[in-house]
């Protein structure tokens, strides 16, 4: 459990520090780094990365959304099948989560493979 939290924390904190200037898919790289460093199992890698990526995307989006008072997220929600503001935030978080998860899983698998070699 502790390692899972470390995976999340590393994904999140790396992202908070440097994600702003990088392409969006860099979330997988933060996950990969975290997975390599901390994950002890597929499950720890995947879910740790998922939570880290989800929080990363959600925090960035929430800061904008709160500052914007939900004006744009409401409009984007209407554009995407009538989602609510929270639905739009939810999708954003899930996308970040899956990117972090796959990144961390891959990082963990890479380390396992590397050690064996």
């Amino acid at each position: 459990m502790k390692n899972l939290a470390f995976v999340s924390a590393t994904t999140l904190s790396t992202g908070l520090l440097i994600a702003a200037g990088l392409p969006w898919w860099s979330t997988t790289l933060f996950g990969a780094l975290a997975g390599w460093l901390w994950a002890q199992s597929n499950r720890q890698g995947f879910w740790g990365g998922f939570v880290g990526g989800l929080l990363l995307w959600l925090i960035f989006a929430l800061v904008r959304d709160v500052d914007n008072e939900g004006l744009l997220s409401t409009r984007i929600g209407a554009l995407f099948m009538g989602l609510s503001r929270w639905g739009v935030l939810g999708i954003t978080g899930l996308l970040g989560g899956f990117l972090g998860a796959m990144g961390a899983l891959t990082g963990y698998r890479a380390r396992v493979w590397w050690r064996v070699k």
Partner: peptide, 16 residues
């Protein structure tokens, strides 16, 4: 979806 929804360069950046 990734390009559009990500909060670093997607539509969130237009949330003034």
């Amino acid at each position: 979806l990734g390009s559009f929804f990500n909060p670093f360069s997607g539509f969130w950046r237009n949330a003034e």
